[in-house]
């Protein structure tokens, strides 16, 4: 179930390459250690552009979520209702993702989730599953 192919630019390429290998990789500043997302050329804390990639564990906490009922584009008409979620990972990184294989009525902000990946032809998208939910 894919939505739209993300527009992957030079700054975000490392993240999406990581997703392709089913890992969560983010840019970390070599100067101050800050891990940043969204992707950017330089560190928003210290403004250094000296950057390396770091891998975070595929676990997080649900910050919030929305159940999309109205299809805002014809191509998502067969996908509603679906859940858009924000998940706090380690190191202060928050990502936008989708909660899958769950009954939205059972969700609560603060739930522990596990990040998994869904492959499509050209890219892989991180998704979240509530911990303890059957896969």
């Amino acid at each position: 179930m894919e939505f739209f192919e993300p527009r992957i630019n030079a700054d975000a390429a490392g993240f999406w390459e990581g997703c392709r290998e089913h890992t969560l990789r983010f840019q970390r500043c070599r100067c101050c250690g800050h891990v940043r997302w969204p992707a950017a050329y330089l560190c928003p804390e210290c403004l250094s552009s000296d950057t390396e990639m770091t891998q975070l564990p595929p676990e997080g906490v649900l910050y919030s979520y929305v159940v999309m009922h109205k299809p805002f584009h014809p191509s998502v008409a067969d996908k509603v209702p679906y859940v858009v979620a924000t998940v706090d990972l380690q190191d202060g990184v928050r990502i936008l993702t989708n909660l899958v294989d769950c009954d939205p009525a059972t969700l609560r902000c603060g739930d522990k989730v596990r990040i998994d990946f869904v492959d499509s032809e050209t890219y892989s998208r991180p998704v979240a599953r509530k911990k303890g939910e059957p896969v």
């Binding site: 192919e5 999309m68 805002f72 936008l96």
Partner: peptide
């Protein structure tokens, strides 16, 4: 942008 990849429209 990236958001559309998650249906965040």
């Amino acid at each position: 942008d990236d958001l559309a990849a998650f249906g965040d429209l």
